[in-house]
Nucleic acid binder design. Structure first.
Lengths: 309, 309
DNA sequence: GCTTGCTCTGGGATGCGTTTCATACTTTAT
DNA sequence: ATAAAGTATGAAACGCATCCCAGAGCAAGC
């Protein structure tokens, strides 16, 4: 590997001067600059990024904690982050946790070891308090609302979105509403919020109408089986378009309930169900901007209700 | 930041010994090891990864060149890579090119500057020859077939898949076949192959039946408009499920042609069109394994034909 | 008793840019 | 003419962990 010292030797100048050329510092005579660039080209020199990273104490690399890599919602979110990161020359490392606390801690440890210049957390597995102990190592940005002041976050107005969904059912005179939610283990903040709003908005909310642990189309089909046992269910809020599709498949040719989903993928258009688009890609973009600009704001991303069917 | 030197100072041992503990080298007395670990814990020490990277000359980070981040095919592929990378403690950096040669060169330059321990190229923008000049800087692994010996690649048997698709049309007595393909600018190897196989397999292949530059559902709809002007077209091969969906939407309530698509997403199941699943996620996994094991093999991933409708 | 071979430890070089500080030469301002 | 400000350059320290090499202590083998 050609090093800066070799360039110094061949040109007869010091490493400082070479470094100055490399970093476009002023105060290098045009003549020397030209010669140095020439020698660099001749020797096919490229600065070792690992050395630069150490020297600068930064790597231009940000980590993005996500639960699953193959989930449309988080894919959209990471696409938003990546689009912005690309513009500013940052590298993005995706860090999937599968909602495993230990795995998430590993990533946080890497962060504290300077592996990432910043960490965007799209969905957390450990308690907020635990995660915030890592704030001293660098900027943490959340993609969900965190009450702590001074902690930047770009968040979806889930409460408003859910409220609108439930009112939509009410306005369409639905009797009872089935609800599917994701991971079961520890009740997630997202699930918690869903149930809270449901209780507020639905006159006779029944916990029995909540189907947990739904993440795939299969789960949706099974949920449909379950919901069909209670024929008074004529409205279903799902936690994703794939689940919604599964439900429709599960209802087969029965008259199916009114469905509101939450991803707004293409399939919703074809299967004619309504969907809440929370614009996760915008959320990701904003999160990156918060990082880049070092702001500590809290930014709300408005949702969009796509009515269909 | 606590450094290894501080630990050395506090414990009274040398940095060598601290480093040995850090790296689980043998030949450290149990007593010293215990004390060192104790002091490390007390001072909340964590080894600086940037320093480790420089020192080791590697970063446990691999780059993955993809054309688009938001494309189901490449998302599956990167998911395969990430799944394996995760197992082995590698970080994955996604490098989207949008098929921009210059952007791809930037990534290759970063690679030559040691930013990545290896580079997986899922789809290339520059000529193979250009890319291979970077092979001297570290392992390059391709996710498409490259004829060069000693260059590892995990590739999809696209020729076989396409052949099967065209024979499927023939077996169903299709008169004429419409074809949609992706990027137009430079004819891509993928498009080239599609046309080549079409010529081989279709008795009266017409170049006019090829619709270029299709990447979105919208494009599919427009393609449908176009194909409808030639009513003898009763079979369509699309380059993705979203395009297939668009075509179905575009044909509206007309009797639609037989459709074979190439992603096997959920939507194909609901819109009842056939799809070739090329298992890009397996391809990604294999590509990572090739990198990890330093093998130079060429691995073919068999496709699967999902017949529907 | 002496060689051979482990086990254990530290000094110091190494990886490779970046940056501070000191120095010296020019200009410009007064 | 002289202080002040700007331009140009190099020596050397710095960032932080890794690792080669030398050397010491100690046990087994002949």
């Amino acid at each position: 590997m050609v090093t800066i010292r070799e360039i110094a030797q061949k040109t007869g100048y010091s490493t400082s001067t070479i470094s100055r050329v490399l970093n476009h510092h002023p105060y290098v005579s045009a003549e020397k600059k030209a010669k140095i660039l020439q020698v660099m080209a001749d020797l096919d020199y490229r600065p070792n990024q690992l050395a630069q990273n150490l020297s600068r104490g930064a790597s231009h690399n940000i980590g993005v904690i996500i639960p699953y890599a193959n989930n449309p919602f988080f894919e959209k979110m990471t696409n938003g982050i990546m689009a912005r990161a690309f513009e500013f020359g940052y590298k993005v490392t995706l860090l999937p946790t599968n909602y495993n606390k230990q795995v998430e801690l590993t990533y946080l440890e890497e962060f504290s070891a300077k592996a990432y210049d910043g960490l965007i957390i799209t969905s957390k597995s450990n308690p907020l308090k635990t995660i915030l102990t890592y704030e001293k190592y660098g900027p943490l940005i959340f993609c969900e609302y965190v009450p702590e002041p001074k902690i930047p976050c770009a968040y979806l107005d889930r409460a408003a979105a859910l409220t609108q969904a439930f009112r939509y059912f009410r306005d369409h005179h639905c009797q009872q509403i089935g609800i599917t939610v994701g991971r079961n283990e520890q009740i997630s903040p997202s699930t918690e919020l869903t149930l809270k709003i449901a209780q507020q908005e639905l006159p006779d909310f029944k916990i029995a109408n909540v189907r947990r642990n739904c993440t795939t189309e299969q789960d949706g089909q099974q949920a449909a089986q379950y919901f069909q046992q209670q024929p008074q269910i004529d409205g279903i809020l799902t936690n994703g378009d794939e689940i919604a599709a599964g439900i429709i498949a599960g209802y087969h040719h029965q008259k199916r309930p009114l469905i509101v989903s939450q991803d707004n993928l293409l399939i919703g258009k074809f299967l004619h169900f309504s969907s809440i688009d929370q614009h996760p890609e915008r959320c990701g973009q904003q999160a990156f901007d918060l990082f880049k600009q070092g702001r500590q704001d809290k930014i709300m991303i408005p949702h969009e209700f796509i009515e269909r069917g």
